[in-house]
Design a protein around this nucleic acid. Structure first.
Lengths: 192, 192
DNA sequence: TAAATTCGCTAACAAATGTTAGTTTATGGC
DNA sequence: GCCATAAACTAACATTTGTTAGCGAATTTA
């Protein structure tokens, strides 16, 4: 794998993702982060402006990846049920390929400081709107049941954004299995 | 309403729920909590053993409520699709009636200290198992589609446990609407 | 080789942390 | 009115927080 030799900065970043995810941004001090990396706390400042700067990098890089994946998946201009499946899978794939970071993205973003916090909220809202558009178009075309699109998108996101927990589960599920089962459940329902 | 005159302890508890939820357990100091209550930090120790004691009370009280609501809903010994709907609604109702506290329950439990942390994890697992049993029985009886029951329960929980966000949304939805729409989506799916 | 840059270090800072000690004030029962 | 209890207070504690200053060694650039 690509774990040959990480730069110190990469090391800090990766360790921060792991620790922030495991115990929360507020609970991790610079000294503990540094120790885990194998350096002293002040050395981190050679690579990042401060604690918040690390969180900022994590959150916004993942945001970029979600947007990029959505755009790519959305290109396939098919009918809504196929399209929603495609963007769901794209979303799950980003999470699967950035497990620690995406968990930080979902759980720790509120510790961003201004103006990053506002910028982040705006991005998040835009991204949700992209999903909502797909659902609403599907409802309009009659492909989807009528209903509160906000509630639907909310439910979809809730299910998707928690997929992190599945990867630490004992039961080993592949990305493909997870994406397939969840999108099927959401599209077709539990009832036989 | 019951907001006549809260005891200091109730006041601390309620304020803690609000603050822990808004900004996270680790981010709230005893001084800030006290200030919001209108007292000095050390006065809190007349009512609670410490910071962790407040979190403990919140988390375990909600846990009790989830179990009680499930038991009550499960009594109605009907077919699985009705039963799952009943326990889903019961679960959502607990959240709706304890909005702040349940969010703390879901997001901040990891800050519990031992041995409470282990006790909490065990309770949580037991509760998930109760849901899993309902789903698995439904699959066995042919009422539900075959599939990974763990994944299904996981998806259900993800959707339910995030309902908190809905109540702070601009769009005012009733408890009943939320419970109805979400359980319908999960049972019947999005597809028309 | 000289100069500049990178990146680690130690020491130290001011501020904030949870908590304890000890004291004062208010309340209710006898 | 007296006493006990509850519950607030101030002062202070040891520790931890994020961060800065400044130094030295290694590496890169010219």
């Amino acid at each position: 794998m690509a774990t040959a030799t990480l730069s110190t900065k990469q090391n800090i970043r990766q360790t921060a993702e792991k620790l922030f995810r495991e115990r929360g941004y507020a609970a991790i001090g610079m000294r503990e982060l540094a120790k885990e990396v194998g350096i002293e706390a002040p050395s981190i400042y050679n690579h990042y402006k401060g604690k918040d700067d690390i969180l900022r990098e994590i959150c916004f890089e993942i945001a970029d990846k979600f947007f990029a994946a959505f755009e790519e998946a959305e290109k396939t201009d098919e009918k809504p049920s196929k399209k929603i499946k495609a963007v769901i899978k794209a979303h799950i794939n980003v999470i699967a390929e950035n497990i620690e970071a995406s968990e930080v993205f979902f759980q720790e973003w509120m510790f961003l400081e201004e103006p990053n916090l506002s910028k982040f909220k705006k991005l998040r809202h835009e991204y949700e709107q992209l999903f909502r558009d797909v659902v609403e178009k599907g409802i309009k075309r009659g492909d989807f049941k009528k209903g509160n699109s906000k509630l639907v998108v909310f439910t979809i996101f809730s299910a998707l954004n928690a997929t992190y927990d599945l990867y630490k589960s004992t039961e080993r599920l592949t990305q493909e299995e997870i994406a397939e089962e969840i999108s099927n459940l959401l599209l077709k329902g539990l009832k036989a």
